Simulated scan of single mutants.
Amino acid sequence: MKIHLLYCRVPNHVLELPDICGALSSEDGEAKKHRYIEWFNKYVGEKYKGCLTGEDCYYFRCSFVHQGTSQHPKSSYSRVLFVELTATSNIFHCNILNDALNIDVQIFVMDILEDVEKWLDEVKDTEVFKKNYARFMKRYPDGLSPYIIGVPFIS
Rank of each mutant, 00 (worst) to 15 (best):
I37A: 05
N12H: 14
G150D: 07
E27I: 06
G150T: 07
L6D: 11
I112V: 15
H72N: 12
E38K: 15
A87P: 06
D19G: 08
C62Y: 07
L6A: 12
N95F: 10
I107M: 12
Y59V: 04
K131D: 04
D99S: 03
Y48K: 05
M1V: 14
E117Q: 13
G50K: 01
F64W: 10
I112G: 02
L5Q: 11
I154D: 09
G143S: 03
H93E: 12
G45L: 04
E127R: 02
K33L: 08
R139Y: 08
D104Y: 10
G54D: 03
H66R: 08
Q67S: 13
Y36R: 07
H4D: 10
I20H: 02
S76Y: 02
A31G: 13
Y59G: 01
V14F: 06
K74A: 03
C8K: 14
C62H: 09
A134Q: 03
P146Q: 00
K47P: 07
V109M: 13
S155P: 03
T126E: 00
K124W: 00
R9F: 13
Y59T: 00
C8E: 15
I154M: 10
A100S: 15
L85R: 15
E55P: 09
G29H: 09
W39G: 04
V116H: 07
Y59H: 12
V123W: 05
V65N: 12
K33E: 14
I20W: 02
G150L: 03
